[in-house]
Amino acid sequence: MNHGLWIMLVGSLAAAACAMVGCFLVLRKQAMMGDAISHSVLPGIVLAFLISGSRSPLPMLIGAGSLGLLTAFLTGALERHGRLQPDASIGVTFTWLFAVGVIMVSAFAGQVDLDTDCVLYGEIAASPWDIWLIGDTSLGPRAVWILGAITVLNLAFIGLGYKQLKLTSFDPGLAAAVGINVQLWHYLLMGFVSLTTVGAFESVGAILVVAMLIVPPNTAYLLTDRLSRMIMLSVVFGVLSAIGGYWLAAQLDGSIAGAIAVVSGAFFVAAMLFSPTHGVIAGYISSRNTYTTFPEEPEAQPRA
C-alpha cells in the first residue's frame, strides 16, 4: 500500500475515534475537558517510556489513561473541596501537568524518544514506516492497529452505553432518579477520552487531538437534530478532514496534523454559514419561526 494511503487511514481512524467520544464532550459542555486531558496525558506517556523503555502501546495506554483520569478527579476535587470555579480548576490542573510533562521530556531527553515538537503536532507522516512486526511478518503500520483497536473500543462503549450516556448528558436529574450512576458514567467517558487521546497523540499531537475531538462534533451539531446522526456525521467530517488535510499538507509541504485541524475548521465554518437548519444564512433568509426556550414565552419566538 502506498504510504499516502496509510497516512490517510491513520488520520481517518484517529478522527473517527475522537469524533465519537467528542460528541458527548460537546453535548455535556465539557469540550475544554478534552483540551485538558489531551495536554495532561503527557507526563503519563513520558513515565511509561521511562519505565518500559520502549514505545509499546500497553504501558503508554495505562500511563496516559491514569493521568487522564487523574485530571478528571483533580478538577472535580478542586471544584468541590477547593471551592474553585470549574473553568479555573481545569486551567490550573492541565497546565501544571503539561508543564511537568515538558520538563520531563527535556530532563530525560536522552532516554525518551519524544521531542517537544512531536508532542505538539505528532508524527503522522512517519507512521507508515513504524511497522508492527511479529517475527518477520509485517502487519502494517502500528498506528493503524492501535487506532483501529481504539475505534472499535469506542464504538463498543457508545453502542453499549448509548442510553446511559445520552440520558446523563441530557438530563442528569432524571438519570439519577431512574438509578443511573451519573458520576460513574462521567468518569467512564473521561477514561475513554483519555484512551482515545493517547492513541491519537503520537500521530497528531496534544493540541490537534482537541481539534479532532470537538470540531467535527460541533460541525455535525449544526447539521442534524438527532444524536445518532450527529455521531455518524461527525465521524464522516472527521474522516473527510483527515483526507482533506493530507491533501492540503501535500500542497503546502507542511504539517499534516495542522492541515487536518485547518480543514476541519473550514468544514465548521461552512456548516455555520450554510447549514439549512442552524446556519447563519438560513437563519437570516428564512422568516420561518423557530422557538426559543424562554419559559415566559409560550408563543412562537423567532430565533435571533
Binding site: 453535548l27 459542555k29 445520552k166 448528558s169 441530557f170 438530563d171 436529574g173 432524571l174 451539531y221 442534524t224 437534530d225 438527532r226 444524536l227 446522526r229 450527529m230 426556550t293 419559559p295
Partner: peptide
Amino acid sequence: PQRESVDWDFPT
C-alpha cells in the same frame, strides 16, 4: 423537572 433544567438544544 422544571423546563429550564435541561438544554433544549440537545440533538434529539
